Amino acid sequence: MTDLSPSDLAKDAAARAGVALVQDGMRLGLGTGSTAVFMVHRLAERIRAEGLRLRCAATSRATCDLAGQLGIQIEELDEIGWLDLTLDGADEIDPDLNLIKGGGGAHLREKIVAAASDRMVVIADPTKVVETLGAFHLPVEVIPFGVETTITHIRRLLDSLDLTHRPILPRQRDGRLFRTDEDNLILDLSLDVITDCSAISSGLHAIPGVVEHGLFLGMCDLALVGAPDGSVIEMTKPEVTA
């Protein structure tokens, strides 16, 4: 990888640090997104150089295809069972390691894989670190049937949380509605600031038609934040005091 932008250099630094955690014999979850692309490339390099024996599950068709092109064998999650480690990116990371994910539309599979792992490690560049989640649109995956009714329920939820008049934007790509790997739709919620992540999370989960949302609360164990100079900062969960 040559002629990288400062942002890409930071992503690559984080990816290298994440891949350095991989040990021979591990069962890995491979994330999706621009930083995960660097991670898959660096992982393939280590496999070739060290002969690592790994069992890997991918969080999207895109990651599966890239891994295959680089010689990494991908298995179904259910074939592997429980995972030792998942390496994935994030769209936002707060000081408690809560995340917004789903900019690439893979947050359903990403959450399933992360929840099936002993440890989730996020790799990111510094722009993803925020004080409060919400500036990045919150993705909500919904089934196509009754989508307008689902939007009405989401709007009522937002109203109840003093988030009135926040835009709910059906995601599009190339002038058409975006479809996930599960053939569902994504609604992007423009919330600006999320003051009560738990309330939004539980409220969205209670709405028929909502498949999954992009809030990852209490799931990340470590965040590795790369910088263009190759350095990496480790973010860990704050200690809970009695």
Rank of each mutant, 00 (worst) to 15 (best):
D183A: 10
T195D: 11
L161H: 09
L185R: 14
V142Q: 11
D159Y: 01
S190W: 12
D196W: 03
V147T: 07
L189N: 07
R171P: 05
L177Y: 13
T180Q: 03
E148P: 04
I186P: 10
E182D: 13
I151Q: 13
R176H: 11
T152N: 05
T164K: 08
R155F: 01
L189P: 01
F178E: 08
L189R: 03
L157M: 15
G146A: 02
D174F: 07
D181S: 10
T149P: 00
L185I: 10
R156C: 03
P170G: 06
I154E: 00
D174H: 06
L177F: 13
D174I: 07
L189E: 02
R173T: 15
D192K: 02
L169T: 15
T164R: 08
I168D: 07
P170F: 05
H153F: 04
L191E: 10
R166M: 13
S160R: 03
L177H: 14
D162R: 13
T164D: 03
I168G: 08
E148F: 06
L157A: 14
L191R: 11
I143G: 01
D192A: 12
T195M: 08
S190P: 07
R179N: 05
L163N: 08
S190I: 06
N184I: 13
L187K: 07
T150K: 14
P144I: 05
N184W: 04
G146P: 02
V147K: 12
T150G: 10
G146R: 10
Q172V: 06
L189W: 01
R166K: 15
F145T: 06
I194D: 14
F145P: 06
D196H: 03
L158N: 02
L163P: 05
D192Q: 07
T195E: 12
V147E: 14
D159N: 11
E148T: 00
R155K: 02
V193P: 00
L169Q: 10
V142G: 09
V147Y: 11
D196F: 05
Q172P: 00
D183P: 00
P144C: 01
I143W: 04
I151D: 01
E182M: 06
R156I: 00
I143K: 01
D181G: 11
L187I: 10
H165D: 12
G175C: 03
T150F: 12
P170I: 04
R156L: 13
L177R: 15
F178I: 07
D188M: 07
D174G: 05
L161M: 13
T149L: 15
R155L: 04
D192T: 05
R176V: 13
P167V: 12
H153S: 11
R171K: 04
P144E: 01
L187F: 09
L191M: 13
L185E: 13
G175Y: 01
R171L: 01
G146K: 09
L163M: 15
Q172Y: 04
T195L: 08
L191H: 11
E182P: 02
D188V: 11
L158Y: 06
G175F: 00
T164P: 02
I168K: 02
D192M: 10
T164F: 00
L187V: 09
L163V: 11
P167N: 09
P144H: 03
R166G: 05
R156D: 10
H153M: 05
T195C: 08
V147I: 14
D159P: 06
T149D: 14
D196M: 01
P167S: 09
V147R: 14
Q172I: 07
